[in-house]
């Protein structure tokens, strides 16, 4: 899923303070699962903002609603009425949702309430970790299911740098060395030969370096 976390409240206040009414729009997708921008978080945020502006003696109204996904036109269009009633939208979706709302509502400000962090997984209660670099050309079959593109701090494709020690990355002792993980895993799978071959330079044109990407599936197009 896409993992996000809420921006500091001060930053959000600065974004919305010039408006008198906003729609705090939650998203029922990934950000609900990672407890950053679902129904509950959208409502909490709206309450916090109302209380703040009340204390400041500023007129400030909120409407709060949550749609199934902010990255789907069907759901985004369903809030047209609410959007029409307010000066601006504060989206608690990921960056995709914010942009999709903005695209669908020209002439209306849509603000991001979250910082979108990464594509990751729930590691333990309250902890999420990055797992996919969205590079467009998966090589997990060569690395035993551990991604060096995103989990190695230097995206190295041919083994660990000189800073790997005791299983940890030189950047921080909190970060596991991806190449130690790859080595251990391939060793246990009796497949170390996979990393003895030199991996050629990566084709980054398949990642964002080729410009914004699109996926087209012809068979489902109308």
């Amino acid at each position: 899923m896409i993992v996000a976390e809420r921006k500091p409240i001060e930053e959000i206040i600065k974004m919305v303070e010039k408006h008198e009414s906003i729609l705090v729009l939650g998203c029922g997708g990934c950000v609900t699962v990672c407890l950053a921008g679902g129904e509950k978080e959208a409502e909490q945020l709206a309450t916090t903002l109302r209380l703040y502006f009340q204390k400041e003696n500023k007129p400030f109204k909120t409407i709060t609603t949550t749609i199934t996904r902010q990255c789907d036109p069907e759901y985004v269009k369903s809030v047209a009425e609410e959007v029409a009633k307010v000066d601006a939208v504060l989206s608690t979706a990921c960056g995709v949702g914010v942009q999709f709302m903005a695209e669908n509502y020209p002439g209306k400000w849509v603000y991001p309430a979250l910082n979108t962090k990464f594509a990751g997984a729930n590691l333990e209660l309250g902890v999420w970790g990055e797992r996919c670099g969205l590079c467009g050309e998966c090589i997990l079959h060569l690395t035993g299911g551990v991604c060096p593109v995103i989990r190695c701090s230097k995206s190295l494709l041919n083994g660990p740098c000189g800073g790997s020690q005791n299983g940890k990355c030189e950047v921080s002792s909190e970060i596991d060395c991806a190449w130690q993980l790859i080595y251990d895993r391939l060793k246990s799978l009796n497949s170390l030969d996979l990393i003895l071959k030199i991996q050629p330079p990566k084709d980054w044109s398949k990642a964002r370096d080729g410009g914004p990407r699109k996926v087209v599936k012809e068979e489902v197009r109308l």
């Binding site: 660990p160 130690q180 030199i198």
Partner: peptide, 23 residues
């Protein structure tokens, strides 16, 4: 090229050196 005999995984260091020579 460089190699670090003091980095880990230790057993892989020589193999990585070989990759560098191969390259």
């Amino acid at each position: 090229a460089v190699e670090n005999p003091f980095g880990d995984p230790f057993e892989f260091r020589v193999l990585r050196l070989e990759k560098k020579i191969e390259a």
